[in-house]
Simulated scan of single mutants.
Amino acid sequence: MTDGPPPRATRTRALPRRPAVRLTELGFGGSQGGNLYRATTDEEFAEAVDAAWAAGIRYYDTAPHYGLGLSERRLGAALRARPRDGYVVSTKVGRLLVPSPEQARRRDPEGFDVPATHRRVWDFSRDGVRRSVQESLDRTGLDRLDVVYLHDPDEHWEQAATEAVPALVELREQGVVRAVGVGMNQSAMPARFVRETDVDVVMCAGRYTLLEQGALADLLPAAQERGVGVVVAGVYNSGLLSRERPPDDAVYDYRQAPPELIDRVRRIAAVCETYGVTLPQAALAFVRSHPAVVSTVVGLRGPGQVTETLRRADVDVPTELWSALRTAGLLDAPPPD
């Protein structure tokens, strides 16, 4: 008797241009560790990392933006006792954290339940990138960063392309960073980064999901052509796809979802149920089917969310579902064969 295939959480895919950097198919998103929307305790976050590690997840994503550095500090502490060559950590540059003691009694205005002890300052300059990387190393306690993404450079193309990417490439050549990337909530500009700069990986949030597939028109074909890996984030579109049936107050792209979109998702869910799978299970299966996708990052707050996400990710979804959704006009395009 032979053992079955390993759980999807433990399977790894290499970045095509940096094959030494291998990401587990399911990645641990650290935004919740920065107290996104509500507080998470140190213990709860550490338990989430422990549960993810025990399940075989070895890719962990964070950013200075998440809780004004709280997520980076917590993630570094949770991983400190693990063998450094046994996991991959990604973080981001573009927002420097500048002390603002005069605001410390207020809460962070950007959605994280933390004191506003710092303010974020956009900076994609060479010096800003190098400073951000060093500060991330200090907060995490790591000796190197496996992947560093430019974080939301939507309004900063020129400086990001001509200063930030070359600065990260220098750090890659020095061994401080192992892979260079860009992370955004759109697909058009990341496709431009893929075509015009020396990036190894793109994190695309919300633009390639079971609900919308805009990245099929630009980012995904460009990534395949140039050998750039794609990490999908926002797979649930801010929560709209995260339940078996979305409630009336479901969130989409960080805002209240419009009724027509909720109705569309409920119709998608009904088709999924006829094939014996739930909406969240189908959402995870759909994105990982594309050959350019190397990992799917899901924000995880505690061990319960880790367990549930692992269960969802390990379900085999019949390929006939995609054709049924397309026939019903609920899917713009099927995943590639």
Rank of each mutant, 00 (worst) to 15 (best):
M184D: 15
P247L: 00
L325N: 05
D152E: 05
H151L: 04
Y37L: 05
D50K: 08
V201N: 01
L261M: 14
M184F: 15
L137S: 02
E110P: 02
V148Y: 00
G56S: 03
R119H: 05
G33Y: 10
G302S: 11
M1V: 12
A283P: 03
A161I: 06
V202E: 12
D127F: 09
A14N: 01
L75F: 02
L211H: 11
D253N: 08
E110R: 10
Y208Q: 04
C272N: 05
G234V: 13
V277C: 14
R311K: 12
R18C: 14
P336L: 10
S125R: 06
L240Q: 02
V231H: 03
G33R: 08
L261N: 13
N35S: 15
V114M: 07
G181I: 08
A81M: 05
I57W: 07
F28D: 13
T307C: 02
Q159A: 09
D3I: 05
V271K: 04
T10D: 13
A188F: 11
R126C: 06
A285Q: 02
L70Q: 09
T91M: 07
G227I: 12
P190L: 15
T140C: 05
P280E: 03
V133I: 06
Q213H: 04
D113E: 14
L310Q: 15
W322L: 01
R106T: 07
V147W: 11
P166V: 14
H156K: 08
R312Q: 10
S90L: 10
D61Q: 09
E173V: 06
P83C: 03
G227K: 09
A116R: 15
A179W: 10
S100V: 04
A63K: 02
P303Y: 09
Y236H: 00
L15C: 07
